[in-house]
Design a protein around this nucleic acid. Structure first.
Length: 462
RNA sequence: GGCUGGGUGGCAGAGUGGUCAUGCAGCGGUCUGCAACACCGUUUACGCCGGUUCGAUUCCGACCCCAGCCUCCA
């Protein structure tokens, strides 16, 4: 059925290879979710859009996708040196809320963003704070197997006990040692990391739990290993996240799971690359912090951003500019208008669908797939068949093409009178009067275009 | 500094050892009273220097530049 079998780039092996699920017909997919201490910016959202494209492609290939996304609502420190403040506690102070309410607030904001981008919700949402016992059990297992050591401030993972630690990122351990500029703190080795942190005696935490080692909270990485094992098993099909997770977060998840379960956690590791703003990644601490709401202030809809992201391959860094975003807005509007004008759907064109599918099955080449869409738009096929085909392709694109309609326009009586007067002037071939009337119409905020069906009125933008 | 990845036309962004990406913008044309829309056509490219090759943007090496990670980050 598929034009071309699905193949994906696996960061672990650093190559594109054919995708086969571990169990026939089923795919276990784990995507690293947000730390809910602030809003998501559009750079964050690019990664979730990539994961949604993956999800849709898997489903189109006939897989039943069990999709798990975590919500990190505790334990993510402001420094990976395992020091610094907990982001949640810090965010709570900033907002004047307690940490639990803060988590709920930003979780809901995040889910709203995903929904407005037509990102399919995961089968399972899981919060770190709902899985403390699972995380403690995981750490206890690592301890029993001799992969941990205890310090004054927590339980640490002994990364030197694993011979291939850092393989995912091709880490140069010696180079890291030399380049390390951070205070190693209580860690014995640069690449060791916290599994469980003790609460500081002088600082009362809002989020803390008892454990066999003392009162405290889980390290950041352990939640993903513990929760993915619970919902998807010790080895599942695909694990995704942003490119920044390759060297630390995912490297450490693999280390924990290898030590405890003897697997590499996921069969495929896929990573979304950054959106660049002014030659740097979009950051929460420097530069502009652009949200979907910011785009809305510029009258750019979330689906325009979705289209924009699909014009670049997920595995390349993409430059953001308002100019290129506007280009996507123009293109998408033309696509919507064309599909709308095509009228009633006819029969889908199998060769176009096959050509499209061949592209998306080739490591999610959505830019190339969009080229197929535009070839369809310009093709000689009948309008009805084009429409039916495009609606089918929207299963992958997620652009709500079938639901689009021109904006309902409320035209004031005064404008309608002027338009009618202008039509009369044109009929009388009094063009200077007609142009004057057009000026009056524009002064009231409307444009008028002459078409075969008569004058077409639209609201002037800005 | 180390490691990983990347440098394509005005912008964004695919791809390939020798023929087209695609979108937006620009230009020319058709249409229009004039416009706009739409449609048709179309210009400009592969960081730099060597090497391999009949031929390299595509393969190899050096260099320059950019990004990611080593400090929170999708």
């Amino acid at each position: 059925m598929s034009a071309q079998p699905l193949q994906l780039f696996d960061t672990y092996e650093r190559r594109v290879r054919p995708f086969e699920s571990i169990q026939p017909g089923r795919v276990g997919l784990y995507t690293c979710g947000p730390t809910v201490y602030n809003y998501a910016h559009i750079g964050n959202l690019r990664t979730y859009l990539f994961e949604d494209c993956l999800r849709r492609v898997l489903q189109a290939n006939g897989y039943d996708v069990q999709h798990v996304m975590n919500i990190t609502d505790v334990g993510h420190l402001t420094s990976d040196a395992d020091s610094g403040d907990d982001k949640m506690e810090l965010g709570a102070k900033r907002m004047g809320m307690n940490a639990w309410d803060l988590a709920t607030f930003y979780t809901e904001a995040f889910q709203k963003d995903l929904s407005s981008l037509n990102i399919l919700p995961p089968s399972i949402w899981c919060k770190a704070t709902d899985h403390i016992p699972e995380q403690i059990a995981f750490v206890a297992d690592l301890e029993a197997k001799g992969f941990t050591y205890l310090t004054a401030d927590g339980v640490y993972f002994d990364s030197q006990k694993l011979s291939d630690y850092g393989h995912l990122a091709r880490l140069d351990i010696e180079g890291l040692r030399q380049g390390a500029r951070v205070d190693p703190g209580a860690r014995r080795f640069v690449t060791d990391f916290a599994l469980w942190k003790f609460s500081s005696p002088e600082d009362q935490r809002q989020m803390e739990w008892d454990s066999p080692w003392g009162r405290g909270f889980p390290g950041w990485h352990i939640e993903c290993s513990a929760m993915s094992a619970k919902y998807l098993g010790d080895l599942f099909d695909i694990h995704c996240g942003g490119e920044d997770h390759i060297p630390i977060h995912h490297t450490n998840e693999i280390a924990q799971t290898e030590a405890s379960r003897g697997t590499r956690l996921a069969n495929f590791w896929l990573h979304g690359y950054f959106l660049q703003l002014d030659q740097a990644k979009m950051s929460k601490s420097t530069g502009e912090f652009l949200r979907l709401e910011t785009l809305a202030e510029h009258r750019i809809s979330p689906l325009v951003y979705r289209y924009f992201c699909m014009t670049a391959h997920y595995r390349t860094q993409m430059a953001f500019s308002w100019e290129s975003l506007k280009a996507s807005q123009t293109a998408l509007n033309r696509l919507y208008q064309a599909a709308y004008d095509w009228g009633t759907p006819g029969a889908p064109l199998p060769e176009v669908i096959a050509a499209f599918e061949a592209q998306v099955n080739d490591d999610l080449n959505f830019p190339r797939a969009l080229a197929v869409v535009w070839e369809l738009v310009k093709s000689k096929a009948s309008d009805g068949d084009k429409k039916a085909t495009l609606l089918r392709l929207d299963d992958w694109l997620g652009l709500d093409i079938g639901q689009w309609a021109p904006a309902e326009l409320v035209v004031p009586e005064a404008v309608q009178v002027l338009v009618a007067a202008r039509q009369q002037a044109r009929t009388d071939r009094d063009f200077s009067a007609a142009d004057a009337l057009r000026g009056e119409i524009e002064a009231l905020g409307f444009s008028v275009e002459d078409t075969r069906e008569g004058p077409k009125i639209a609201a002037l933008s800005s």
